[in-house]
Amino acid sequence: MSLSITLTVNAVPRTIALDDPRVTLLDLLRERLDLTGTKKGCDRGQCGACTVLVDGRRVNSCLALAVSLDGAEVLTIEGLAEGEVPHPVQAAFIEHDAFQCGFCTPGQIMSAVGLIREAQAGDDPERVREAMSGNLCRCGAYKGITEAVLEAQRRLAADAEEKAA
């Protein structure tokens, strides 16, 4: 039995036939849509390497069945930059050396983008660390990650103020 779902992935509408209703969003992205920036870490929702935004909210894509997301808007790391211009969170991660091996970086960045969009980051490093605690970094780059999130949030807030003025 084949099921058909429609997703908007990185602003591109896609209709996808699923042969198996048990396919996760992570496997759909990586194996069917060739969007391999989203990483498969634990495959149990414990590490956050597979974090993407679904309808603007942070989701561990390894835990989400693709069939349950029919009609959703999905944003992955590949859809974050505007052409060659990195998203402010991506730029802040580079500037603050917020990665080492880089495996967790896409999930960390997507979680940070979601956190900032949810207006949950605040300006307290401890609050950011707590809100990002679902994303693990085996290399221990947490200090740089926290600094990058705070810096990106300041930049995005300044950009929003500038546009409003």
Rank of each mutant, 00 (worst) to 15 (best):
T8P: 00
A131H: 02
D124Q: 00
C104E: 10
R57N: 13
R154H: 05
V113H: 02
V74I: 14
H96G: 06
S2P: 15
E73I: 14
G114R: 07
A64I: 13
G37W: 04
R32D: 08
T6K: 15
R58T: 06
S61E: 12
E78A: 08
C104F: 02
V52E: 04
E161Y: 01
S4P: 13
A49I: 07
Q100N: 07
I145G: 11
R44K: 13
P125I: 04
V67P: 12
T24R: 12
D159T: 04
F103T: 00
T105Y: 06
T146Y: 06
C139S: 10
A165E: 15
V54K: 09
V23K: 10
A112G: 05
R14P: 02
T76D: 09
S133A: 14
S2T: 15
G144W: 01
C101E: 03
E118R: 04
S2A: 15
L3P: 13
G140E: 04
L35D: 09
C101Y: 05
E95W: 04
R22G: 13
T24E: 08
A91F: 11
T6L: 09
T15S: 12
D19A: 13
C101N: 06
R154P: 01
I77C: 08
V9C: 06
D27E: 10
P88K: 00
M110R: 08
S68Y: 09
D159Y: 04
L75H: 14
L80T: 10
S61H: 12
C101G: 04
A160Y: 00
E162V: 07
V9L: 06
G41D: 03
V59I: 15
A160W: 01
C137R: 11
V59F: 14
T51E: 08
P106W: 02
V149P: 03
V128L: 07
E78T: 09
G114P: 06
L80W: 10
N135D: 12
E151T: 07
Q90V: 06
E84F: 14
E126S: 12
C50H: 03
T105R: 08
D123L: 03
T8C: 06
V9Q: 06
A91T: 14
P21V: 11
R154S: 01
R57S: 14
L80M: 12
V89M: 07
C139A: 09
D43M: 01
E147Y: 03
F103P: 01
S4T: 15
A112Y: 01
T51S: 12
A164L: 11
G122W: 00
P21T: 11
S2Y: 14
D20Q: 11
C47E: 02
I77H: 05
I5M: 12
M110E: 01
E82I: 14
S68K: 08
D55Q: 10
T8L: 00
A148V: 08
S4H: 14
R155N: 00
G37D: 05
A66G: 10
V113P: 01
Q108F: 00
G71P: 05
